[in-house]
Structure formats: structure tokens, C-alpha cells
Design a protein around this nucleic acid. Structure first.
Lengths: 348, 348
DNA sequence: TTGTAGGCGTTATCAA
DNA sequence: TTGATAACGCCTACAA
């Protein structure tokens, strides 16, 4: 059997006594090819098991129809929502998606950025790793005018396009809500404040305190890695405090949910003794008892927005496409974990 | 500036008064190139902003170093764990990963399978869409001897390699555990039983009932889409039953968690009035109150297993690689939602 | 409507 | 140790 042989348009041409160019055109449904011929070409192609070679085409046409995506990790509820959004738009526009996870390592991020470059992706979407401080690995993209966009965890630089939410405002809203509910000593558990998302939420938290005349107490700020272990440690620390805090703002629903459960087990009444607000509006937040107040964080929309923006960049032949920052709406969702009394009409 | 021009090995060759072949060899760190020359080549390449063209290389070398992955959806806790496992192994072995989501549509699955073929992926990993019944779109892969492996939701055909858990046994274990805890009327909420995973869990559930002398009552079987809405509807149905069921086995932790919460709100005591077991060991299952008993479902390991298997296929030049089924261990984790009394030493 | 010929950027073979 | 040359499979002027 010759089934191992890779069939090319030349093989089809030979069999059909036509030229390769006619085959190429036929396969592309070019109108300049006789309908009958076209049918013969398609039939023979199928019959011979022909599959066209994207690489040869890319080599020839100089574009790849592929978008690269680098995220810190794939197994995160938020990230997978973002990816789903990106995928939807990207594939809808006829592009493929090449994905890598940096596993929060700057080193891997650098490596995968190179790989994306070698694979000649038409564009790149990045959510930064936790410890990236040097951004030189992205310069080749700028140099070669390959659209480079960031989503969620971004570079603080006006020259890059990005899609974010207003983390500062969200942090402010969450904290203000807790204050409205009567909280005076509010603990904030967050992630690495090197990254904009955690840094800005913290800034919002502090601003809210100040605006309401509550002193910022650095004992009440826990910078962690937001894992389950950190949550448990934080709870231990909280329970030792005297007086006990009466509010808790956590930068991540999962971590908040663990805290909620452990505090409850320690006899703390939620929200009476301690009101809690999380972040993300993960499905988790509706599962806890009491249900967790949180900031709705539109992962899928963020993915769709950044991908749409990228596709626009690619179809606009005019290179003038300015860097832009898209800020999507995020909002506080008040549930039982922080609802003590009607105060503002924001309950959902 | 000539920064728009794409630099090739010819440009470097010209500048260095060397031949393109020498440049190519130098860039590949070929030992047959003078160390000094090599250094010059690397330096010049950097300086000129050279980036090698994967497509030209692929075209020439006839392999792409790319693995295709088609999953039903990206925004699923389980799927993202599987993907994380795949990515880890794939990238560790120097391959790239091309991802598409079928969004549970067989039609899209067919389309993306074609795209993967055109992109000449070196191998393909698939988790089937919910409604796929015809599998002809995978035949080209078989014909061209391109490794095709399934994970979790698989084709019931010995000729394909796959990585699964023993869903039937898990369903049996979960149900037997409920019976051990004294349950006599056990409701089973599951997904589309067209797919092996839900079909087998149901079979295990039924077998456990029969083995313990409990008649199978089709009123107690809810085939749903496992969404939140379905969970709520199921709870309504359950609450109307007379007598009330005393056990609940749900094929998915999220759905189980919603049921648990709603049943509790309706005044049902968990586990005293109704014992509940979920499936997946999502983080969700530790968040509920009481914590949810579940089947530990090793997503990341499944991903790693299927990817490792694929990489082995690719490095084994002998094509004899037989189809194999890898069954990973899944186990019942008993937590509070189903623990009424010490019965077997399986409590964790 | 179809055919001819050249090139996309790389690597492999052979020769020097 | 380096160079010349011919592919890899496709697309696209241009010619017929």
C-alpha cells in the first residue's frame, strides 16, 4: 500500500493529467477553474487521502493564522474562562491558538515567548507570571510589529494594549461595603503585590480605609500566595488577634471560601462577627454557606475583548493601531457573607 | 530603518561573507563549525534580529513538533486540570500545543479535527463532545499513522489508545458506600449517558443496588446536563417525592454542591436525612458545608498519562505501538456529607 | 480555463 | 571546516 506516502498536489496533478497550479486553484475553489475539473480534483484528493500542508502555505504566504497565548497556569477557574473567551473569538475568525503556561515562572515565560516568535504567531496574548519584572523578552514583538496584548496581569506601560478591570476601584468598593456594614478592623488577604491586580486591589483597600477615617494598619495586610495552605495559616493568625478583626477582604474566592469555612468552625459567626468579601465570582462563591459576597470578574468577556482587539489589529492594515487600555466593568455582588443591614441598594 | 525586513540566514550569510549552509549549521550548534565562526554567527543573528522560521524548517524536516488537543470546553475545572497535565509533559518534551474547544458540538469537533490534520500535528489528544456518535472524522489520523489518543470521554473501541478511570467501579463504590451508611432510596443525578463516563457511572450505580438487593427504580434516575439549573430542578423533584429519598449520588461536584445547599435550605439534614456523594474532587467539594464526599478524579495525572503515552508513541520509531487503555486509580473520599457511622475503614 | 516557472526559508547531501 | 545545490509543498504572476 502507498498509504504512507504523503500526497501532494503534484500527485493529484499527475493522476489527473493536469498541472499543479490547476490543482492548487481547484482546491481553493478558485472561480477560474472549470466546475467539472474542480469536482474531479476534490474527488481525487479525497480518494488519495490528500491533506494540504499548512506549512508550505504559510511559508509561501508569510502568515500563519495562529495566535499565541501565554498564561500563568491553565488549571485556574478564572484563566480557563479567559481562554474560553479568547478561543471563541479566535477560532470564529479562522485562527488557531497555540497555548503555553508559564507556571508563574518568569524564566519559562521568556522561553515560551521565544517559541511563539519562532512559530511566527500573527499575534500574542499574555497574562504575566507572578515574578516577571523584566519585560525585554517582549521587545522582539514590538520590533517586528507583531500585535502584543496583555490581559488581566499586565505591564504598567501605556505603550501596550491591554484588557483589565479596575482593580483599584473594586478593592475600594469591597472595602467600602465592609465599612458600610459596620466593619472597623478589616483584614486584607491578597497575592503578590508586584503584579498590578493585587497591588491595585490593595491600594483600593487602603484608600477606602483612609477615606472613611480608618487608619491603615499593616498588621492587617496579609500578602500571600493565595493557596489553601496560606488561607489556613491566615485564619490561624486572625484567630490570635486581639481584638479580633470584624471584616475580611480576600483577593480570591477560593481562598476566601476556605477562610470562611475555617472561621465558622472556630465559632466565628459570619457575617455577624466577621463580614467577608471575596474576589472573582467563581462558582465557589455561590456554594459556600453563607454565600460569599464577591467582585464579579468577567473572565470570559475579558478573553473575548482582548481577542477581538487583536483580530482588529490584524485586519486593519493601517499599522497606526494605537495602544489602548480596555477596562471592563467589574462589580460588587453582595451575598450573605457580608450582609448585615440594608445600607445601599446594591444587594443582588 | 530596515527593521521591517524579515532577516533570513541569507542575510546573515551575506553580511558575514559565509554560505547559508554554514549559518544554518552554526545556528544549530553543529560541531562541524568553527567555534569562532559560530560565535560570530550568533552575535550577528542577534544583532540583526534574526528569528528562525519554523515553517520552513517543518516543511523541510517533515515534522511539526506540535500536538493538537480538542476538548469539549476550556472553562471546566476538570478539563483545565487535564490540560495542565498535558501541557507540562508536552512542553517538557519540546512540543507545542494547539488547542481547540468543541463546545460540546460534534460539528465543531469534526471541523477542528480537520484543522489539526492540516496543521500536521504530530499527534492528537481528544476528549469527545457530548453528542458525537459518528467517529469517521478520526479515520484520517489512523490512515496516516498519526497517534490519536483519547482521554476521559473516549470511543468504546479497543483499537484506540485512551486514558480513563474506572467509572463503573467508581459509581459502584459511591453507591455501595451510601448503602453502607443505611441509604435505601438513592437518587442518581448524572449527565448524557451516551458518553462512557456517565453511562458507566450509572451502570455501577445500578449494579451496586442489585448486588445489595435494592430494586432499581427508574424514577430515581435523573439524566440531566449537570448545570446549576438542572440541579435546582432536580432538587424540586426530589422534595416532591414521597417517601423522600435518603441518598443522593451526583456525577459532578458542582451540581452536588448546589443540591446540598438547596436541600439544606429546605430543612433536610445532611447527612442524617439524606447522604450525598459527588464526583470529581473539585476544590468545590471541600468548600461545602458539610464537606462533600466524592470520587477523586485525577485530572492532571490523566493529562500527564495521555501526553506521556503520546510522546512515547512519537519517539518509538517502531510503529507497532499497540492501542492501550490506561486506567488510572480513582477512589472514594468520604467526608461529612455522607458519613453517618463508622462502617468501613475508608474515611479520609 | 489551464500551464510554466520561480520562490518562500530551511536543511541535507555531496563535494571541495 | 565550509560551500553549492537541490529539495520540502505550495502559491501566484505571467504566459498560452
Amino acid at each position: 500500500m502507498s498509504q504512507d506516502k504523503i500526497i501532494t498536489i503534484y500527485d493529484i496533478a499527475e493522476k489527473l493529467k493536469l498541472s499543479p497550479s490547476t490543482i492548487s486553484r481547484g482546491l481553493q475553489n478558485n472561480t477560474a477553474v472549470n466546475a467539472k475539473t474542480k469536482k474531479k480534483i476534490f474527488d481525487t484528493a479525497n480518494e488519495m487521502g490528500y491533506r494540504f500542508n499548512t506549512f508550505a502555505r504559510n511559508l509561501r504566504t508569510q502568515n500563519t493564522n495562529t495566535i499565541g497565548v501565554i498564561v500563568p497556569r491553565l488549571n485556574s477557574y478564572f484563566i480557563s474562562a479567559v481562554l474560553a473567551g479568547i478561543e471563541k473569538v479566535i477560532n470564529g475568525a479562522g485562527y488557531n491558538m497555540l497555548i503555553s503556561q508559564s507556571l508563574e515562572s518568569s524564566e519559562k515565560e521568556v522561553e515560551y515567548t521565544k517559541t511563539m516568535m519562532h512559530n511566527r504567531v500573527d499575534g500574542l496574548i499574555v497574562t504575566l507570571a507572578a515574578d516577571t519584572t523584566n519585560f525585554d523578552h517582549f521587545l522582539p514583538f514590538v520590533k517586528h510589529h507583531i500585535p502584543l496584548l496583555f490581559v488581566d496581569r499586565v505591564i504598567d506601560d501605556e505603550n501596550y494594549s491591554k484588557v483589565v478591570i479596575d482593580n483599584s476601584k473594586s478593592g475600594y468598593d469591597a472595602t467600602t461595603h465592609l465599612i458600610d456594614q459596620g466593619c472597623k478592623r478589616i483584614v486584607h488577604i491578597t497575592g503578590n503585590t508586584l503584579r498590578n491586580v493585587y497591588r491595585d486591589r490593595k491600594l483600593g483597600y487602603e484608600k477606602a480605609l483612609i477615606d472613611h477615617g480608618i487608619p491603615v494598619d499593616h498588621e492587617l495586610l496579609f500578602e500571600t500566595d493565595l493557596t489553601e495552605v496560606s488561607a489556613l495559616k491566615s485564619v490561624v493568625k486572625i484567630l490570635k488577634m486581639n481584638p479580633l478583626p470584624d471584616g475580611l477582604f480576600v483577593s480570591n474566592d477560593f481562598c476566601a471560601a476556605i477562610c470562611l469555612k475555617k472561621l465558622k468552625q472556630a465559632g466565628i459567626k459570619i457575617p455577624e462577627d466577621m463580614a467577608i468579601v471575596g474576589f472573582n465570582n467563581d462558582t465557589t462563591s455561590r456554594i459556600t454557606d453563607p454565600a460569599l459576597s464577591t467582585i464579579n470578574y468577567p473572565g470570559q468577556e475579558m478573553g473575548e475583548a482582548v481577542a477581538t482587539n487583536l483580530i482588529n489589529c490584524l485586519s486593519n492594515k493601517d499599522i497606526s493601531a494605537k495602544a489602548q487600555t480596555i477596562v471592563l466593568k467589574s462589580e460588587l455582588i453582595v451575598r450573605e457573607s457580608s450582609f448585615r443591614r440594608e445600607h445601599k441598594p446594591i444587594k443582588l
